[in-house]
């Protein structure tokens, strides 16, 4: 609200008096609100895709597992747990970015060929492998966190 008056003051010279002051201020306010939501949407998109790989990025153990985030031993042989496991898996898939989850589901569930997926999502095959790699790391870690 304050910002509206501030930007109105800054651009007061461009106000030609064709419309009333009220209409003018309201139009600035509207634009401010739109800007806010647009920025918010961008921020969320970044948040979703900002998954950090569970490997050391530098040092002696570069590209090796960070121990706390490395895959532990799963005991999923027990049939009773199947439904629960499946529910968690669905939840974890929903946390992937829209593009990653689309690629993941097309590749595994629909068993599409790599070319089909690449054409559909418009990515190169090298990019497809990178996305699958990230998605698998992320889903696996999420399942482990929720389940064990």
């Amino acid at each position: 609200m304050q910002e509206t008056f501030l930007s109105a003051y800054k651009s007061k010279d461009s106000f030609k008096g064709k419309s009333s002051e009220k209409t003018w201020l309201v139009s600035i306010l509207k634009r401010r609100i739109i800007d806010y939501y647009r920025k918010e949407a961008q921020r969320q998109e970044q948040n979703i895709s900002s998954y950090q790989l569970p490997f050391y990025e530098s040092g002696d153990f570069v590209n090796h597992w960070i121990e706390q985030r490395a895959p532990k031993n799963w005991d999923t042989d027990n049939q009773i747990h199947y439904d629960e496991f499946h529910r968690i898996l669905q939840y974890c898939l929903s946390l992937l970015s829209p593009k990653h989850s689309l690629v993941f589901i097309m590749k595994i569930l629909d068993e599409c060929s790599s070319e089909e997926v690449c054409n559909e999502v418009n990515i190169s095959s090298a990019n497809l492998w990178t996305i699958m790699h990230r998605a698998r790391l992320q889903v696996r870690e999420c399942v482990e966190k929720k389940w064990f």
Partner: peptide, 8 residues
């Protein structure tokens, strides 16, 4: 684990 996830 990923074989398991795919299987399920």
């Amino acid at each position: 684990q990923n074989e398991k996830i795919d299987g399920i």
